[in-house]
Structures are given as C-alpha cells and as structure tokens.
Design a binder for these strands. Structure first.
Length: 345
DNA sequence: GTTTGTTCTCTGGCCACTTT
DNA sequence: AAAGTGGCCAGAGAACAAAC
C-alpha cells in the first residue's frame, strides 16, 4: 500500500497564473504557454522508401518500431506495398485508422510503412518535441477525443488524418518545459510499471501459496503432527493414518437424468455459466434447448469438457445444465464442500 | 482520399463419430 | 448408453490491404 500511496502522491508544480486558452476543449493553460494549430507544428512527410527498409508498425500501445522487434506473424501483409513511405527514427507517427485507440507514437526505428500513417516531423526541431505531442495526442485519444470527431458509422474505424490533426489547436509550452514534461511522464510510468510488475509477482506467489494451503488441507489434513501412512496411490502420496482412500465411485453417485429442455421451466446452466477454478456461478442462466441434464440441490457439477478448466459447481437450487456436465450426488458421509474443493484442484 | 473487406489469432464452447 | 477423440465454429481483437 505504501508504494501505491507514494506513487499517487501528486507533486506537480503549480504555475503562478493560468489563462484561458481560447480553445473550448483545452480550457485553461499556464500563462506562458501558447496554442498553435497542428499544421504549424508538424510537417507531414512522404518519403520514398529505401531498398533494404523493413516494415515499421505503429501499435496501439504507442510503440512505433520494426515489426521484427515485436513478433513475426499475425500481421496482414501487403502484396504490392503500394504507396509505402519511409520512416525515420524520431518521427511522430499518427495511425489514421487506429489513432483513436492510442496508435500514436515516436518511431524508434528506420524503415517503411503503410500509407495510412501520417509521418510527421517538427517544423522547428529546436522548439517542438515529438515526444511531448505523442503523450498529448495519446492522452487525448484514450480519453475518447478522437472518437468524438468521428464522421463515419463504422464501429472500429475512426479516420483521423493529417488534415484533422492540422486543424487542431494544440498547446505549445516552451521547449524546455516540453522536455521536462516528457521526462517526468517517462520516469513516472516506469516507476508505476515496476510497481505493477512487483505486485503481479506477489499475486502469483500468493495464488501459488493458496493452492498449496488448499492442497495440503485436503490431502494431508489440518494436523501437521498426525501420523501418516502411504496411501498406495501414486499421485496422492502420504495421507494421515486414520484416512482412507476410496474410489470416486464409492463416494459419489453418478446422477444422470436427461430431460428435454423445452419441457421444463427450470433454470439452465451452460458451460459458460460456471467460472473456471473458482466455481463461481455467473448470473447468466438461460433457457435450455434440446437435451439437458437435470440436477437437484446440493449436487456437484463437474465440467467434463476440457477438464483442465476446472469448472466445478456445488448446486444451491434445482435446475438443468449442459450435458457436458457430470452430475454427482455425494454420499452422506462426505462433505459436499470438501469434495468440491478436492476435485477442483 | 475514403470506405469496405481481409487475414490471422486466441479463446471458449458445441457437436459428431467411434469405441467400449 | 457412456466414454473417448477430434473437428468445427463463433466472436472479439488486431492490423491492415485494396478497391473504389
């Protein structure tokens, strides 16, 4: 928790005075900043390609790099590479079709790309930082700004081309401030990413520990000092002395009643209704069609299909389920919940 | 320049056929 | 009739290509 607090403590410097930018969607900006149209800031390039250029892709996470740096397949490949253009390191690349989803970035590679990218270069390199505008535009994109400019009706394709960019009023902080802002974002996001990685490792460890706790409890009991004996079953190993090993067939009954779904009003559970591993019931109960299996309260449903998904559910009501579930009644001397946990792991 | 269509991958889920 | 085996399918997500 401490780490999160540290990271989210705001320590942004405040400016002494702000002014109205004169642009609706920008609101107030610091006194010493200006605004400029995109076309004043960047030129759209259209470079010829070179012989040994590799293909550069602008990804939605903002990385602009040679394809070969990320993966080798999964791309749609051009047959003729019609209209391909050159890209240089440091170019600001705006993906006309995917900008709305964040595909805007500064290239770290040299190469060629599809013509749907707007490849931009600062008009005055000593006054304009591509990185600052990359962060600015990505932030706008991810907040839905570009989507809001959409003129078309197609769902996952919002055109955002250089001309649209050219018409936008953008903030223009002094150059050294642009650099500062970019550096700040970079170091902050790196820190946050590191924190995320750390947390994920901790979560993974805890998950593993949870499994061990459960597994030990169901296979070895709660008393660590209890005398053990060999269960004579390879995959179980030692068990407490006073335990027995029984085949599933002796503790459960395969309860198998098939019903035509259309003849019943009972709620129906499909495979998708039970969450993997956790055995949680999602609220999606639906109408049964065709043949279904019938179950009563307090029975165990075990997903037979792709059993590694570990879909196990202890029923709390009467209903129908997909025939891909095995319906089992647990004999009275065994605890339902214990059984459920045992077969889930 | 615009718009519409492709291609691939991944994931989760259903179904049919053969064998016990 | 249950169990085992493999194929099929749909939908979402990604990243474009190419035809107008």
């Amino acid at each position: 928790m401490k780490m999160i607090d540290d990271l989210t403590q705001m320590d942004y410097p405040q400016y002494n005075s702000y002014k109205d930018s004169g642009v609706d969607w920008l609101g107030e900006i610091p006194e010493e900043w200006h605004t400029e149209k995109g076309k004043w800031l960047f030129n759209k390039m259209d470079r010829p390609i070179r012989e040994d250029d590799g293909i550069v892709t602008c990804f939605r996470d903002g990385e602009v790099t040679l394809r070969s740096n990320r993966r080798t397949d999964g791309f749609t490949n051009a047959l003729k590479e019609h209209g391909y253009q050159g890209i240089r390191k440091g170019d600001l690349v705006i993906h006309q079709m995917d900008a709305f989803a964040g595909a805007i970035g500064v290239s770290d590679s040299e190469g060629k790309s599809t013509p749907v990218y707007s490849v931009c270069v600062p008009k005055k390199p000593d006054q304009i930082s591509p990185h600052y505008y990359m962060y600015f535009m990505r932030s706008m994109a991810l907040r839905g700004f570009i989507l809001s400019l959409a003129k078309g009706i197609r769902e996952r394709s919002t055109d955002f081309r250089y001309n649209d960019f050219a018409k936008l009023d953008l903030p223009l902080p002094p150059y050294n401030v642009q650099i500062k802002i970019s550096k700040f974002i970079e170091s902050r996001t790196t820190q946050i990413d590191q924190a995320i990685t750390l947390k994920q490792q901790q979560i993974a460890k805890l998950e593993e520990y949870k499994q061990i706790v459960i597994q030990n409890a169901v296979t070895k009991g709660l008393n660590p000092d209890a005398p053990m004996k060999d269960s004579d079953v390879d995959w179980i190993g030692d068990i407490p002395e006073h335990w027995e090993v029984k085949r599933l067939m002796f503790v459960t009954e395969n309860f198998n009643k098939k019903v035509l779904g259309s003849e019943s009003k009972l709620p129906y559970l499909g495979m998708e209704s039970i969450e993997s591993k956790t055995g949680q019931l999602s609220n999606e109960t639906s109408e049964a069609e065709g043949l279904a299996s019938y179950f009563k309260e307090d029975q165990i449903l075990f997903g037979k299909l792709r059993p590694y998904l570990a879909k196990v559910y202890l029923t709390t009501f009467e209903g129908l389920c997909s025939t891909e579930f095995m319906v089992m009644s647990v004999r009275s001397e065994i605890s339902n919940t214990f059984f459920k946990i045992s077969i889930t792991i």
